[in-house]
Amino acid sequence: MALIIPKHYNPRLSVRETQDAIKYIRDTFQKEFGKEMNLSRISAPLFVEKSSGLNDNLNGVERPVSFDVAWKPGETVEVVQSLAKWKRLALKRYKFEVGEGLYTNMNAIRRDEELDNLHSVYVDQWDWERVISEEERNEKTLRETVQNIFRIIKHMEHEVWYKYPQAVKKLPEDIFFIDSEELLQKYPNLSSKERENAICKEHGCVFIQRIGDKLSNGEPHDGRAPDYDDWDLNGDILFWFEPLNCALEISSMGIRVNEESLGRQLALSHKEERATLPYHKMLLEGKLPLTIGGGIGQSRLCMLLLDRVHIGEVQASIWPEEMREECEKHNIILL
């Protein structure tokens, strides 16, 4: 996706008013999110040891930012790309019970990201994870959790409207569920991103289920690491974003792998060597709790609720100077 410049763009809030709105949205959302989902706020690391197997490999091609530390020669330390696996270990360490969970602020660096309206080198999201029972490892639990998250986001629309009525975006009333294979059959001649755009434009907000495994066309809907989500019980929450004429992904989430699904997905992705890493060994030996979890983009939620057309309007990052200049010409002020 190249840089998109909407015609006659008006952000409606000044830069300082925008900063106030960002803080209000982040403070209010995490408080409501924690309460409604029964999640406790905990602290999280900015980096982990590579040998632990805790870092998220994303699609397997992104290069994590890494460095060494003086007190452990030969060890590589990596800035986290997400906390998908670390959270599950934390639930065990801190003795969370079934029905209880955690959330935290996750900050990451994506050095290989292609910069545009939606993508930045800097990633900020609420990472969350909750313990579930064996009986809850099913699609019903997944969908009920998605609907709860949608309701919380929808409630935030009203909260922001009270404080910034001139700037808030009107969100759809419901979320639509569709399986990735069903979506492929509906739009067989479109790419996966084009399919996302088409279904989101039709329904306003969509949860696309089952991401990571190959579909009938021989390709996955999107890349997903094999060692955190169960590919049969996961998905993405997307909103139709009219200013950019595209789908805006707000959350990636799912029920996490158990011993069986981890082994199967490592084999399917030819990553069997990960089974020897400390985290993966614990999981395969049944020493970690069963969980559901995901991430919710903080800056993207601010973009959505404030109807902003560039993620740089709601987060401080670095951008090519030519992008800054082009944006400023059209009233898009990058922080």
Rank of each mutant, 00 (worst) to 15 (best):
P64A: 11
V65G: 05
L334I: 11
I332P: 04
E313Q: 15
T276M: 05
L58P: 01
V69D: 03
G293L: 00
Y94C: 12
Y228G: 04
N107Q: 10
L288F: 05
I296N: 03
Y9P: 04
I175L: 10
E242A: 10
G212L: 12
Y24K: 14
S317L: 03
S192W: 02
P226W: 06
W86P: 07
E113M: 07
H221I: 08
V79Q: 03
L215T: 02
L248N: 00
K72M: 11
K329S: 09
E202N: 07
F29K: 08
L46S: 08
R41H: 09
L262D: 07
T104W: 01
E17G: 12
G53C: 02
L290Y: 13
E62K: 03
Y279C: 00
K72C: 07
E259W: 01
G101S: 07
E219G: 00
Q30I: 08
D229C: 06
Q30V: 11
R26I: 08
T104N: 10
E136R: 08
E194Q: 14
L304K: 13
D68N: 13
K92S: 14
I199A: 01
I211Y: 10
D230Y: 03
N107I: 06
Q209D: 02
H330P: 01
L284V: 03
M37E: 07
I152N: 10
V77W: 15
F67L: 14
M323Y: 13
L89M: 13
P11K: 02
G204A: 05
N138C: 13
P243R: 11
Q30P: 01
K214F: 05
E182F: 00
H310G: 04
L118Y: 09
Q30A: 02
L102R: 09
E32K: 12
K35S: 08
G263F: 06
L183G: 10
H280F: 03
H330Q: 11
I153C: 12
E62T: 06
S299T: 05
N217H: 00
L233N: 06
Q298F: 00
W128P: 03
W128K: 05
V48M: 12
C302N: 10
D227C: 02
D230A: 06
K50L: 04
G218A: 09
I292S: 11
E144I: 01
Y279R: 01
E194S: 07
R41T: 01
L266P: 03
V98P: 15
L54Q: 03
T291C: 11
E139F: 10
E129G: 08
W240T: 01
Q147D: 06
L83C: 04
L305D: 13
S120G: 10
S40T: 13
N59F: 00
E249G: 09
D112W: 02
E139G: 07
G99D: 12
R224V: 04
R143H: 10
E259L: 06
P165L: 05
